[in-house]
Amino acid sequence: MLKMNNISKLYQTEMVQTHALRDFNLHVEEGEFIAVTGPSGSGKTTFLNIAGMLEPFSSGQYLLDGIDVGKLNDNQRADVRNQKIGFIFQGFNLIPDLNLYENIEVPLRYRGIKANERKRRIEQCLEQVGLASRAKHLPQQLSGGQQQRVAIARALAGKPRFLLADEPTGNLDSLMARQVMELLEQINRDGATIIMVTHDPELARRAPRNIQVVDGQLADFTLYQGAQTLKNVAGV
């Protein structure tokens, strides 16, 4: 599903060079639920950005679903992001001027899905996150937990095979964080591969596979037994 071989990311300014990732190797199989932890500044977000094709890498090879990402142009990267990846952001990143229905519609429009099909999918996703009755509400009329559920619905609407979550519970209280986590686990059980960046060791422990990023490299990984729907585990 996801293979990163010797990925490096170098940020260069006039004064200083910073290696955000160094010879980063990771193989993720379909259906895995991985929690990525690590101290601040270790390169977690850079890893997530590269995995989600949000920024280019400096060297190495990255294969996503067999596609060599390094060879794609900007438009092709946008299309692959749209079709294969669902994003869940720490700050939800909902568009404040659009209601829930329209927010979820955004990636579907970019894919060129017809209005009837969009409607069906949006209603289904809102149902799945328990917000079917709030479709016409604006994001600011919802609690943080509800907003994150909308963001999850938006990520799911495109039926992605790969879900990237950046501190999905970082802005939520513990009750709402638990609800969101349960939702992610359910989505994983339904077949989606999930990579979740988190600071929260409690949440990380709930993921079947943990990886730790330290100084831009993969430091260690721990496989937690009792994974619910883990189909296959690949080491690095």
Partner: peptide
């Protein structure tokens, strides 16, 4: 800015 970045992340091409 963030909204535009989010739209790009969700699959918007530059032309969009």
């Amino acid at each position: 800015t963030k909204q535009i970045g989010t739209r790009r992340a969700l699959g918007a091409r530059k032309s969009a």
